[in-house]
């Protein structure tokens, strides 16, 4: 096997299957994501898109198939898995900032505990990142004192602090009030422009059009369609995608 060559995709899912009991949530998923690529995964709820996202850092274990990141097969458990996860940033729908730590501590924690950086270095970098996502002034507050949009931007900074190879976004704006969605999408768009490899599960079609290189449409645990955003939104090939788009774009 040739690994780490430039032609090798950064993230590769091959023949991935997963069941929740009787429910076949992921069916024969094949998906490759190249370095610097931004892939937006859309689809109706229950289509398996969040599960797909969560299998990539093994927050959900798969039952069949193979997932590799940077040519390396996802380890089963233990230290190896922890090391691999540290290279995969994740942003959750419900932010999941550590409730008992300040904003600054949230961002410093990973670099100190996992990367073994010194406190001083971690803090310097954390402050830069918090400024970058526009919440530098909130550094000493606790998560509950921030708005949802601010919390999610902190969560992005927390993931970035690990200098990940790829970022996973699991419906990052679905828990936000409408007026806060854009502040998060703006941060994500600028990340995409800077060349970050991103896999984004979202309902934000505007973001998909603006920032994605590719749109992946899922339904009932399968990837039904995969195309460039313009092609997908203007000329979807599958009936299921046409139906889905007509429901969400017509109002």
């Amino acid at each position: 096997m040739t690994s780490r060559t430039n032609g090798e995709p950064l993230v590769r899912l091959a023949g991935v299957n997963k069941w929740f009991g009787e429910l076949h949530v992921l069916q024969d998923i094949d998906l490759s994501i190249d370095r610097g690529e931004v892939v937006v995964v859309i689809g109706p709820s229950g289509s398996g898109k969040s599960t797909l996202c969560r299998t990539i850092n093994r927050l959900e274990a798969i039952d069949k198939g193979e997932i590799t990141i940077d040519g390396q097969r996802l380890p089963e458990e233990g230290k190896e898995l922890a090391r691999l996860r540290s290279d995969v940033g994740m942003v959750f729908q419900s932010f999941n900032l550590f409730a008992h730590k300040t904003i600054l501590e949230n961002v410093m924690l990973g670099p100190i505990k996992v990367r073994k950086q010194s406190k001083g270095d971690a803090e310097k970098r954390a402050r830069v990142l918090l400024d970058r996502v526009g919440v530098g002034a909130q550094a000493d507050k606790y998560p509950a004192q921030l708005s949802g949009g601010q919390q999610q931007r902190v969560a992005i900074a927390r993931a970035l602090a690990m200098e990940p190879k790829v970022m996973l976004f699991d419906e990052p704006t679905s828990a936000l009030d409408p007026e806060m969605i854009n502040e998060v999408l703006d941060v994500m768009t600028s990340l995409a422009r800077d060349g970050m490899t991103m896999i984004v599960v979202t309902h934000e079609m505007g973001f998909a059009r603006r920032a994605a290189n590719r749109v992946v449409f899922m339904d009932s645990g399968r990837i039904v369609e995969s195309a460039e955003p313009e092609t997908f939104f203007t000329n979807p090939t599958s009936d299921r995608a046409k139906d889905f788009l007509s429901k969400i774009l017509n109002h």
Binding site: G78, A82, R85, G89, F92, S94, N96, A99, V114, A155
Partner: peptide, 18 residues
């Protein structure tokens, strides 16, 4: 403790003990 707290910790690369 909400499950998301431990999930976020694991996603950062912390092991079970950490």
């Amino acid at each position: 403790v909400p499950a998301g707290q431990a999930e976020a910790a694991r996603a950062l690369g912390l092991d079970f003990r950490q």
